[in-house]
Design a protein around this nucleic acid. Structure first.
Lengths: 226, 226
DNA sequence: CGTGAGGTTGATCGCTTTCAACGGAGGTGG
DNA sequence: CCACCTCCGTTGAAAGCGATCAACCTCACG
């Protein structure tokens, strides 16, 4: 089994390449501490260095949908126009680096390869959303959970392992609001995965996937008897 | 009431700016005619000139999810890596222009503003998917339909009108597979909008929105009694 | 040891799906 | 010209999955 500590030796990608001359200030965020609010001017992009930052929308009647999770290496804000379209807040203790938007965009003119890199990043994000919309549109609760866990595992670099153990610092509520479900359904799906022998949950934040193949089958909707 | 014919006088955006020297060949597509298949090499991007092209995934058990509709002015393929991740086909008679991928990307080096323009395009696409994931994750069937119709209307440039009449060359099945619903639910939702006096359907492909405000309320989930 | 937040489990409800029948528009051939 | 057929959309009845309401559990923390 691979352990989470072993993989990230290379560390996440970072945007120091953007422009060494650009002033970039770091900021620490506690769990549930907001980073930006809907309507804020997009003066800065934020690179996540540590932790997880969510962006979400809350309806007038209280419904909430988490639009995305930003993990270390991810960039927040470039999909926005002049103002942020969603609230963003940390869902775990996090560290972010603020990058002035204007100087980042200006540097594209001087160094086209930056534009290319940002374009690749944007393309990856579009691809991610395409897959996610398939999850939300056509997969059952159990399949969504399986897809989500698998995706977390792949992002952490354990996609090829047969079994995996890692920390999952995402609450049931956050998972639910990201996957378009309720906490109860998330909880029940996790138990179902557990009783089927696909995962173990020593603690609620520790995830052990003992059978990656069956998790993949579920996520890809290739399961014989769902 | 605004009519559909009146608005598009300026015509859709196009990519002739990319590189006049780039050979770009046009292609006509009949309804249901495939453009690319999952796994195809991404040799070309395609700009939609006319009609609507869908990209979608079909599961082993027959479930289908349409990931996106590409309207005139939209670019297909830049979210992909070296191979297309989804099937694409026309859902209405369409015309597309093939743009060689390599020369398009090479031109970024020579003319950084092209990278900027593509980046803006990608950002808009991400923003679109963010909103769509809210639709799929948290909105009811009726609210999804309302959001979808409103979005079509806004794309056509009638977002500010009080009432609108336009052609809707998208079948119930395509709407259903895009919104994560079934044809029956789409049909029932459309009749519900009709009986509530929000829309009229002279023919199944002709949409008249008589009360844009109430459509907006529904789409934004601000309705008093849903 | 009390308290509160987060998670699990059970019972019931309701929206969407599923299964089924019907209707209208367009096309084809007798 | 009309019978027939097929495709697409609509409507009805029943079933099912996830939501809702509610109780209980666990653990961290004061």
């Amino acid at each position: 089994m691979m352990s989470a500590a072993a993989a990230r030796t290379d560390g996440p990608a970072n945007f120091s390449w953007v422009n060494p001359a650009v002033p970039a200030s770091e900021r620490h965020l506690e769990t549930h501490e907001p980073l930006v609010h809907e309507g804020d001017d997009t003066h800065y992009f934020y690179e996540v260095l540590e932790g997880i930052v969510s962006s979400y929308k809350i309806f007038a009647d209280g419904r909430r949908q988490i639009v995305s999770f930003a993990f270390p290496g991810d960039l927040i804000g470039f999909s926005q126009g002049n103002t942020y379209r969603y609230d963003c807040e940390a869902i775990a203790p996090s560290r972010v680096r603020a990058l002035p938007k204007t100087s980042l965009l200006r540097s594209i003119r001087e160094r086209p390869e930056i534009g290319e890199k940002l374009l690749a990043l944007a393309a990856a994000e579009v691809a991610y959303f395409e897959d996610h919309s398939i999850n939300l549109g056509r997969k059952s609760a159990l399949e969504r959970i399986a897809s989500f866990l698998l995706n977390i595992i792949e992002r952490a670099g354990f996609g090829d392992a047969e079994s995996v153990k890692l920390q999952l610092p995402i609450s049931r509520l956050d998972m639910a609001d990201f996957l378009g479900l309720t906490i109860e359904t998330v909880s029940r799906s996790m138990t179902k995965l557990r009783t089927r022998g696909i995962i173990e949950l020593p603690q609620t934040t520790t995830l052990v996937v003992s059978n990656m193949d069956r998790l993949r089958d579920l996520a890809e909707c290739d399961e014989e008897c769902p």
